[in-house]
């Protein structure tokens, strides 16, 4: 279906890649609803994927007592909800991440305050 309109209806999309200084990446931490929403981050495409855990996410998730306990080699990743194995040494772009992709991570053994998913 599409918009019912009197005249041809064509307007530019607001959030195309060119409008941002860097591509947006959406990130969510499963089983940790103390962070009640996933986050949005503009990240240069050449950022090494491994830098997420060491440089990018501490500022976002470091408040949680589970964060310091994460073993990043055991983390399970999902891209658009499907299991996914990124290479931490490669860049975001080389791992196939594009503007407005959404990735999530699960930290086995760590599921929030007293296992409550909070």
């Amino acid at each position: 279906m599409s918009v019912v309109a009197l005249k041809p209806y064509a307007f530019p999309a607001k959030d195309v890649r060119e409008n941002f200084p860097a591509p947006l990446l959406f990130i969510g931490w499963e089983d940790h609803l103390m962070f009640g929403t996933p986050v949005a981050l503009p990240l240069p495409p050449d950022t090494p994927f491994g830098a997420l855990g060491t440089a990018v996410l501490p500022g976002t998730y470091g408040y949680h007592p589970d964060f310091a306990k994460i073993d990043w080699t055991k983390v399970e990743w999902f891209k658009s909800g499907k299991p996914w194995k990124p290479d931490p040494a490669k860049s975001l772009a080389d791992n196939g991440l594009k503007h407005k992709d959404v990735i999530r991570f699960r930290t086995p053994g760590l599921s929030g305050i007293n296992g409550s998913c909070n």
Binding site: G28, M34, F35, T37, P38, V39, A40, L41, G59, T60
Partner: peptide
């Protein structure tokens, strides 16, 4: 707690 990273909408 103050979340400083902007949320996904």
């Amino acid at each position: 707690f103050y979340q400083k990273t902007l949320p996904m909408l």
